[in-house]
Design a protein around this nucleic acid. Sequence first.
DNA 1: GTGAAAGCGCTAACAG
DNA 2: CTGTTAGCGCTTTCAC
Lengths: 337, 337
Amino acid sequence: MKKHQVTIIDIAKNLGISKSTVSRALTNNPNVSAETRKAVLEMAKSLDYQPNMLALSLIKNETRLLGVIIPDIQKPFFAAIVSGIQHAVGRMGYRTIIAQSDESPQIEKENIQALMLSRVDGFLICHTRDTRNFDHVKTLYQKGFPLVSFARICQELPIPKVVEDDFNGLYTTTQHLIETGRRRIALLAGPKHMRASKLRQQGYMAALRQNGITYDQDLVEHTRFLPEHVTSAVHKWLALPKPPDAICTIYDAGGIQIIQLLKNKGIRIPEDIAVAGFGNDPVASLVEPGLTTFEQRPYEIGLIAGKQMLDTLKKKFTDMPPEITISQGKLIVRSST
Amino acid sequence: MKKHQVTIIDIAKNLGISKSTVSRALTNNPNVSAETRKAVLEMAKSLDYQPNMLALSLIKNETRLLGVIIPDIQKPFFAAIVSGIQHAVGRMGYRTIIAQSDESPQIEKENIQALMLSRVDGFLICHTRDTRNFDHVKTLYQKGFPLVSFARICQELPIPKVVEDDFNGLYTTTQHLIETGRRRIALLAGPKHMRASKLRQQGYMAALRQNGITYDQDLVEHTRFLPEHVTSAVHKWLALPKPPDAICTIYDAGGIQIIQLLKNKGIRIPEDIAVAGFGNDPVASLVEPGLTTFEQRPYEIGLIAGKQMLDTLKKKFTDMPPEITISQGKLIVRSST
DNA sequence: GTGAAAGCGCTAACAG
DNA sequence: CTGTTAGCGCTTTCAC
């Protein structure tokens, strides 16, 4: 069981001085004589004194704890972001409490509520694919919590945001597909309300338009990123009178699944149908054929988000216009196209 | 900036009663009249009162926060474990602070130190591949912190431990290789001091022995799980007068890298050399050929570890013999063997 | 049933 | 330089 904790009072008693003096000695306050400080430090060491951060937090009203809200830590994309965030804020002494929403808006809300009670110093949030109501975040904002939104952002608040190279990503990918001779390019998109999905679709459409290819609504399918949706989308496309000669997706996992599906059907990639993804997941280079994809650097996104948080934390009182940061990406061509 | 927090004193003043009564009403203490309670609850709601967990933690000396120490959240294995832990302890109201050691024993030590100061209620720890000194954990133990060790465990302490199916995993895999006609089976092991690596190697050797195959030291290489080590091990084996006809590894990433290496050299898998892994990483099924591997369920390991922690937290005062839990696994045969 | 007071561990403002 | 006092927000005796 837990033993009695050594407190500054123990040190004070042992030395026959007041606890304020002990506190001063311990906090490098100049108003302590050299010998007193020495004695305190020695006693602290011999008693194995450990300051109680809880008491400190209560006084300073700061915990040096940051809440990180993500949908799923098992997705390499989010794991990398978390890693970046931790490395960015860690050197300033901040720790992170990671909370997973499991893509449930309700759990997301509960997690935020709980971390608010734990008095974290700020929140870095990536919403679920289904979050449409942002009242819980607005509450945080009103309460004055430093906020940073990343990847799946909340646009209704003037807070720092870090996003992927959405429009450009699909524009570039589609352009590449067209340049390699494809004309009937299908798009596996995400939920219609999702900002990132909309932007990526716009990039796709812009590339088509620019090359004089008419947009065919039959070639665009919206998913909620579930495998079932991918399967039915592919089946629908293959049953078309004129099936696509290329499929691009707004996320790598979808692209990889499509590769598997097409291979199982004996369809050659890229000869019959080219496939492209988005994100450059670790697995994209391992599948056969390698998945052409638009690289994102989630670790960098985390680093940037962490830094934004640090900034927000520092200049609490300025209200410089919060910006939206776009993490640059680039196309990685592999043998799937 | 942060606004003034509503406290029970605000409620008390508004109602003209004492803060003790407010506290009682809020904590469902029976010694409050129904009407007072009602008034307090209403006032709390209208003021949007949020209890300050910090103050509570200071009094109760418990934070409902658990420290999770892992080498690298970007490894799917650890990400899955973390997920399991969170889901196990989350329903009991515990949150987790994840700290990455980046495989550095020094950082591991610092992280533990820091979380100790933050007064987490317990630690779930997976050590770095290079951790050999466990003094920092022993300190925790002496201080009475509930501890659970998983995957890369500390054997020097009587605490709950959750490990993979190490011996059996490589025994089964090697057996399978032998049954499919292989005789010169190489082993890509881990650091010599690492318990899991030793056990897996023992499983490998047991299978050889049982089949009357003499152990050839040239066929066993120890790595620190770095790609360079894998490359040089493979080169060394291929340069042997009698190269191996199979390679088994104690971790999937190694197996996958070997597959890539052999393919690049035009060596056929499994015809020329069979390859097997350990863990069933998500990618193992995606490479070509699919990697035969011994499945572990890291998510389950996390669940178990989380439950052990919950138990430790509950029965603080009993000292039932702490056990070592082995997460069962099974061989998944794919086309690499 | 309710209020006053003490205390969790620590810092900080105020006297000397 | 050092001790005393107050207070962070809350629970918990102890009186009444």
